[in-house]
Amino acid sequence: MSDRLDQLEARIDELRAGVRRAMRVKDTATARALRAELRAAERSWDTLVTGGLDGSPRVPDGAPQGLVTVREQAHQALTLLGAPAQPRLIAAVGEAFLGGTLRGSQLTSLRRDEERSFASSPYGRPYYLCAALTDRLAPARGLLTVSTWPLERRMVGPLSPRVDFLTCAIAVARHLSPDPRAARLLARMARNIPGGAAGDLGPPDPDRVIEAAANELAVHAERDTRDRADLAERATSQLDDRARLFGGTTLITVAGAAATAANGGAPTGPPAGPYVLGAPDKGAGATAARTKTRNTPTRGRR
């Protein structure tokens, strides 16, 4: 068996070198082919080295846990929050309050699936997870809402992201459970609200958070309510049912298209290379721009 292992290791090294060589000259076709071979060799190695005992193949990431589950979890989290939210926050709420195993990355394609379902049989479902709408009545990047909410709540005026954040913070404080993950989530939100956190340490005081958030809300509420009402009125008069839920224009994936042509937003990590002292003028170009995804969800960073 160790002979086989040796052979496999030699083969793996060879393939790896091949892949990296191909990548260096940007020969992606060869790299892809070699990579596939490499994965196969690595799988054989894994099987062999574990003696086939631990043969339980790992569930690949993103394995279907049933769309309904993810959808329902997101729905529950959004209902708890009561305001448009980003996948990241939805996942955190799901984890802290609903015992969920939701990951932000699972939510990225949700809106499109919902829109497709709505298109094929409108109002076939009791609720849809849909878009928040910008002042151009287009879907706002990375926000999820629930179709059964009043339209105003799903609008995004200039102050709305802040108002929604404060609303969410109050909701999280109200539902605070003994789960340490809930306390951590609240602490993280509290420190971004003036007067919300006593110090850096100790569990956050939910009453204090609610009071602080309400105080700041009072500053923004009037203008935000007005902005949202205006937008909702426009949405009602200008958009059909589908667009009212999922946005006036087709979904835009700005990041990809724009980035290749005009990206200056370089990845924030320092570049690396044998002689890199400062930052080379690399990485901000096409390669890095394409790999850059907005709203990258965090996962399991604890």
């Binding site: 790896r16 990548m23 994965r39 690595e42 190695w45 894994d46 574990t50 790992r58 990431d61």
Partner: peptide
């Protein structure tokens, strides 16, 4: 090419 896939595979040996 090597480390990220190895970590992703969850195989400590790899």
């Amino acid at each position: 090419e090597v480390l990220a896939p190895a970590i992703e595979s969850g195989s400590a040996e790899r």
